[in-house]
Structures are given as C-alpha cells and as structure tokens.
Amino acid sequence: MLIAKRSFLFLLAATMLVGCAGKQPLLYQWGSYEDQIYAMYSDTGKVSIEEQLNNLEHDYQVARADDKPVPPGFHAQVGYLYFQLGKVDQALHSFETEKTLFPESTIYMDRLIARIKLNKGQNVYNH
C-alpha cells in the first residue's frame, strides 16, 4: 500500500514534468525564414536579395525532403523577393502558391496579384 502510494506520486510528478516541459512537434519547417526577415531590416544591403532567395530556396528543399510544410508567409516572402528582382512571373507563381497552401491569405494575395498584373513590366516597388 505504501509502495503503491509512493509509485503513484512518483508517476504523477513524472507525468506533470512531461506535461510541462514536453514539446509538441512543430507544425512547420522553419529554416531561416525569420532570420532572413531580421537580416532584411537589421543590415540592409548586407544580405543581397539573391542570397535571401537562395537561402529560402534551400529551406524549401529541406522542408520537402523532410515532408514538412513551410510556414505561413514563406511563399509570399519569396514572391516579394522575386518581385524586387523584376521576376514577375515567379512572383505571381509564389503568391498563387501561398494562396493555395493558406486560403486565409486569398484576399491579400489576390490584391497583390491584380496589382502586379496591372503594372506588369514595371517595377512598382522602386527598390
């Protein structure tokens, strides 16, 4: 009886430990997405747009290999980088992909897509 009680308490304590400190598996493969955004603002020009795209492309390959989704906003960010390089078709494709993966973004992505199509050929971001 004493042993049973002791084991119970021990188990309870252990369970709570797991409950508190245990980690849920992440929903997304994060790669460097947030770091790229930080770098964009903190050292403007230090990481070129091409380099940022390469890093995100690498993240995407890793995510695919792990069969994990990339986070919300990832493809939209890629589209934004392509757009700054004047690669309009890739930008449109990325915004469409964001919309397909996350329908919550539909209104915003449609707005960006319409805007790009309207200005096709001109770089409206002035970067």
């Binding site: 947030e34 955004i37 603002y41 919300p72 906003g73 939209a76 934004y80």
Partner: peptide, 20 residues
C-alpha cells in the same frame, strides 16, 4: 517583428507575411 511569426503559426494561426 521578425520573431512573431513562429509562436503564432505554431499556435495554429495563419500569420500574414510580416515584411510584405
């Protein structure tokens, strides 16, 4: 701003692309 996407997205929300 560059740190907010992860906790919110992992909590289960769609987070709009912060830089865009």
């Amino acid at each position: 701003l560059s740190t907010v996407t992860k906790p919110l997205a992992e909590a289960g929300y769609y987070v709009f692309p912060v830089a865009l």
